[in-house]
């Protein structure tokens, strides 16, 4: 016992001097994080309260926000982008995540052969650059050179083919599904990892009680991976409301046809940087960026305080 007390003593004596090294070691990360994350964020929030009046940058309070929500055309653009963004998000939640869970569940079946191959193949698009994804899908769906009309013709469904990316009614759904195709690997991997974490004893116990197959998935496995599903949902939310790249590469900055694929990210890009003859408007751009930040903040907070605290976690 004496050795234990001695070491405790020595810990206490060691703890007494000010532990500067902690500060020193934290400092680089703190500086880098502040300069590349916090500072631009604060600067964006600040810029949204300023506008150019007579060539001078002037503090205008909430006038930019008033313009965004009050002026007819700005408001119309903004609400359309927000609506499209919610549809974009809904398609991800309804297609990407359930299919991701289903794929993960299938991959975790121990008897499945070639599981590693499927896992890699499904995850691979996530690693591709969105530029490549946008380009190949534009080609696949092209009514002129695309393979889609050809394959649909082979199975006699040619009459159902339409230039989906060019029709206002279907363009947003088509782009959303391309994004789902690209990103489905992420929910699949996270849920797959969560499923592998379920101890065999739990499954065995369930089997002893006669819970097998589908009911085992619904009653045992799904409740156990719920926290992971929550995590995936919030990642999808943040990703979708920050999305820009795929729409930009597939549909261009004007997010055509007729603005039907315009989401907050493309609206922000056009406003902030300008497009063709339209000059960039930094103040209004920063205003849109601030609203996007607030939407994401609200969504994440809702999840953190409303849902995550109530999700029951099981300790094994």
């Amino acid at each position: 016992m004496s050795s234990a007390t001695m070491s405790e003593d020595s810990i206490q004596t060691l703890a007494r001097p000010k532990r500067w090294h902690i500060l020193v070691f934290l400092l680089p990360a703190f500086i880098i994080y502040s300069t590349v994350m916090i500072l631009p964020l604060v600067e964006t929030l600040r810029l949204s309260l300023f506008n150019t009046v007579d060539g001078q940058s002037t503090f205008v309070g909430l006038a930019n926000f008033q313009m965004l929500f009050g002026e007819e055309r700005w408001a119309a653009d903004f609400w359309r982008a927000l609506k499209n963004n919610f549809i974009f998000f809904a398609i991800h939640m309804l297609v990407q995540n359930p299919v991701g869970i289903a794929l993960a569940a299938m991959l975790s079946i121990p008897k499945l052969r070639l599981a590693t191959f499927y896992r890699t193949a499904i995850f691979l698009p996530t690693l591709l650059s969105f530029v490549i994804v946008g380009f190949i899908w534009k080609l696949i769906l092209s009514p002129i050179w695309g393979i889609t009309p050809f394959f649909m013709d082979l199975v006699g469904l040619k009459s159902f083919f339409a230039p989906w990316l060019g029709k206002p009614g279907s363009a947003l759904i088509a782009v959303s599904l391309i994004s789902v195709w690209q990103n489905i690997g992420i929910p699949m991997m996270l849920i797959y990892a969560a499923l592998l974490n379920i101890p065999d004893e739990v499954i065995e116990a369930a089997e002893c009680d006669g819970v097998t197959g589908w009911s085992q998935f619904w009653k045992i496995k799904l409740p156990l991976v719920l926290p992971a599903i929550g995590m995936v949902s919030i990642l999808t939310f943040v990703g979708n409301f920050n999305a820009f790249d795929l729409i930009y590469t597939v549909q261009g900055a004007l997010a055509g046809p007729d603005g039907s694929t315009d989401i907050l990210g493309t609206l922000l890009y056009r406003t902030f940087f300008g497009f063709q003859l339209q000059l960039g408007d930094r103040s209004m751009g920063a205003t849109i960026a601030t609203v996007m930040f607030l939407i994401i903040l609200a969504g994440v907070s809702l999840y953190l305080f409303g849902i995550q605290r109530r999700v029951r976690r099981y300790q094994f």
């Binding site: 055309r73 700005w74 060019g166 029709k167 206002p168 004007l254 055509g256 046809p257 007729d258 603005g259 497009f275 063709q276 003859l277 339209q278 408007d281």
Partner: peptide, 29 residues
């Protein structure tokens, strides 16, 4: 027609003309 003076403001006439022309040809407007 849209290049001199008329594309100075928001909404930008040139960009709007792009969308409008495409809509007219698509038959959606």
């Amino acid at each position: 027609s849209t290049y001199q003076i008329l594309s100075r403001g928001t909404p930008n006439l040139e960009n709007e003309t792009w969308v409008a022309s495409a809509n007219v040809i698509n038959g959606t407007e």
